[in-house]
Simulated scan of single mutants.
Amino acid sequence: MICNTKYIQDYALDSAIVKPGARYIDVLAHSNLRGNQPGLSVQQYYAKRMRENRNAQQATSLTLLWDGRTMQVINRPLPDGGWVALHEDVTEKLEVSRQIAHLANHDSLTSLPNRNTFHSRMSQVLADIDHSAGSAAVLFMDLDRFKQVNDTMGHMVGDQLLVEVAVRLKRSLCEGDLVVRLGGDEFVILQDNTSRRDAERLAQRLIGAMSEPFVIEGMIVDIGLSVGIALAPGDGTTSDTLLRHADQALYRSKSRGGGGYCFYDAAIESKGLSAMVGDDGIEPPTCPV
């Protein structure tokens, strides 16, 4: 019965077709032909909208437009059985909401998942382990000589280095592994459905990847990586415990000069001793298909 110029413009419609007196299904067929609501046929589009329009209560839905924008459609029923539909472009609102949700679970510098994501995923993994008698590994990592980079080359170079480190870490992982940035130069990897040997091989692969020099703004940056490893469920059955034990193993690795890895050992940690797990010549594995 009524439509305005703004509606016709937003949906890229022809005013000669979309006007008072037109059949609603013809309006939607024309809109669909213009590329609005992609993925739905005219019949599906019509059925979707009529379900919303005939709802006894006010209904809200989203429609994807031909140019990628999103319209929010609010259908308000009328006493005579008709309806009024209000269309609002909510593209920017949705993007802001997505950014807020992303920042809540990701690191703003590297875009890696953050501590919140780690604990959430770790809880799921531990629940699966409890039911299936599986295993997992937590690898706590810290960059060697990172403070020296910040002190001598500046924090901007340090930040760019962290971004490049994140890229190398992701490239070193197998499918299903999770890498997060806790803050500063601390990173953690959660390796699910794994073994002690697999975790050891991953640590070796990560250390090798970080030993290759970085080129940041034309400057050669040489760092290393130290790793502490805790295995679930043997070394802990909560994400906090596993993270703490992996951190303790990392401390032992750092105390030996860095560039290596240590497994958590309750007996060693309780005595405050330092013991290093050495490289036994294991070749880096290929990731399972």
Rank of each mutant, 00 (worst) to 15 (best):
T238I: 04
S253V: 08
P233E: 00
R256M: 14
D222K: 15
A232S: 15
Y251P: 01
I229E: 11
S226Q: 08
R244S: 13
S253N: 04
V227A: 14
R244E: 11
G228W: 03
I223W: 03
V221N: 08
D240Q: 11
G260N: 14
G236E: 00
F214A: 10
D222M: 15
Y251N: 03
L225S: 02
A249G: 07
R252E: 06
K254L: 07
T241C: 14
S255D: 09
S226C: 05
P233L: 04
I220K: 14
I223N: 02
Y261E: 12
V215Y: 09
R256H: 13
S211A: 15
V221A: 05
P233F: 04
G257K: 13
P213R: 07
V215M: 13
D235F: 07
P213M: 06
G259H: 08
I220Y: 03
I216W: 04
G234M: 14
D222I: 13
G258S: 11
V221T: 12
T241D: 03
Y251M: 04
G259Y: 03
S255R: 14
G236Y: 01
S255P: 03
G234L: 14
I220V: 14
L250E: 00
L243K: 00
E212P: 01
F214D: 01
F214K: 14
I223D: 00
P233I: 01
G260Y: 04
G228K: 05
L231Y: 03
L225Q: 00
V227D: 11
G259I: 00
G236H: 00
A232Q: 03
D240K: 01
R252W: 03
R252D: 01
S255W: 09
P213A: 07
L250C: 03
V221W: 02
V215G: 01
C262R: 08
Y261F: 15
I216H: 08
I223M: 06
A249W: 00
A246L: 09
V221Y: 02
L225M: 10
D240L: 11
R244A: 13
A249E: 00
M219Q: 15
T241S: 11
E212H: 13
S255K: 14
G236M: 06
S255G: 14
G224H: 04
T238W: 07
L242H: 06
G258R: 15
D235G: 12
T238A: 11
Y251E: 02
L243H: 02
R252C: 04
L243E: 02
